[in-house]
């Protein structure tokens, strides 16, 4: 297989980094080579933020950054950031936005990033259990229950 490229984007505070960490952790645990890129610093002050996850089996991931036009998946947590990042999506790539989720059913709006991961999960063969292990590793225990619901909302909604 060739390298799979997933780009997460949003505004500072929308859980972009966390979501990319979960995706990276999941594929790492499944034995893929993986690289993850992000920019810190000014990001926490509400500005645009993006994080790239690239993974592959049987070959090495080279650059940690997804080249323009090569993202297989673009997962955006804030609608305003679609236009900022859509140039990264390849022809025929999958764009996921909050419009794909029934946000009114989210118990905690902060879990939108987890619901989006649930939506994204349908495009991969990883099991719900595998996703849950990765999610639980990255979040404090008090969020595990809520995350599970948000994840399933995205996955089944």
């Amino acid at each position: 297989m060739s390298v799979v490229n997933v780009k997460f984007a949003g505004l500072g505070g929308t859980g972009v980094i966390k979501a990319s960490d979960v995706m990276a952790e999941l594929v790492f645990e499944q034995g893929y080579d993986v690289k993850k890129a992000e920019v810190h610093g000014m990001s926490q002050r509400g500005g645009s933020i993006a994080s790239d996850v690239r993974f592959a089996k049987g070959e090495e991931v080279q650059s940690p950054m997804i080249p323009t036009g090569e993202a297989d998946y673009l997962v955006v947590f804030d609608e305003t950031q679609v236009v900022v990042n859509e140039a990264f999506l390849k022809q025929g790539g999958v764009l996921l936005t909050p419009a794909d989720i029934d946000v009114s059913k989210l118990e905690n709006v902060k879990a939108l990033n987890v619901a989006m991961l649930g939506k994204l999960s349908k495009h991969f063969d990883f099991t719900v259990d595998q996703w849950t292990v990765a999610l639980n590793k990255l979040f404090a225990e008090k969020f595990h229950e809520g995350n599970k619901k948000a994840f399933m909302l995205g996955r089944e909604g």
């Binding site: 505004l11 500072g12 000014m42 990001s43 926490q44 002050r45 509400g46 500005g47 645009s48 323009t68 305003t80 950031q81 236009v83 900022v84 990042n85 140039a87």
Partner: peptide, 13 residues
């Protein structure tokens, strides 16, 4: 270089 679409700049909280 191609000019990327400008994102939202950081600001004071």
């Amino acid at each position: 270089d191609p000019v990327p679409v400008k994102g939202k700049p950081p600001m004071l909280c």
